[in-house]
């Protein structure tokens, strides 16, 4: 890493998370990438941290249980009904909203 165009190993290691998180400016990111392509010392650490990121992103992604979806759906409609009573919202407003919520809730 004596080449004048290369940034040193300690700077690369210090920027690894930001590099992996795609938070570096394009120029800094390119410098890190260029270094990693040829540095056998830094690459294993990069590989380890990348494996962590990839692994965490693949951890089981839970979805809202159907019963909770339904509960929230009903609670929102109940609030709509209350606000409808206290304003002059036309009746079809509630009906349309129910249809729309049902469509979006049922989309998954």
């Amino acid at each position: 890493m004596k080449d004048g165009t290369m940034i040193p190993c300690d700077q690369v290691v210090a920027k690894l998370w930001e590099y992996l998180d795609q938070e570096l400016a394009p120029e800094a990111s390119a410098q890190v990438q260029q270094h990693l392509e040829i540095c056998r010392r830094c690459f294993p650490q990069y590989d380890f941290q990348r494996a962590y990121r990839v692994y965490l992103l693949q951890v089981q992604r839970e979805s809202v249980p159907p019963a909770l979806r339904h509960r929230i759906f009903e609670a929102i409609l109940a609030e709509e009904a209350t606000s409808k009573q206290s304003s002059d919202v036309p009746f079809e407003h509630g009906t349309g909203l129910r249809a729309l919520i049902a469509r979006i809730f049922g989309r998954r």
Partner: peptide
């Protein structure tokens, strides 16, 4: 008129 304004806002909520 007031009704249709509320409808737009709430529909926005559901979609967003």
């Amino acid at each position: 008129m007031r009704g249709s304004e509320i409808r737009v806002q709430k529909v926005g909520f559901v979609e967003e």
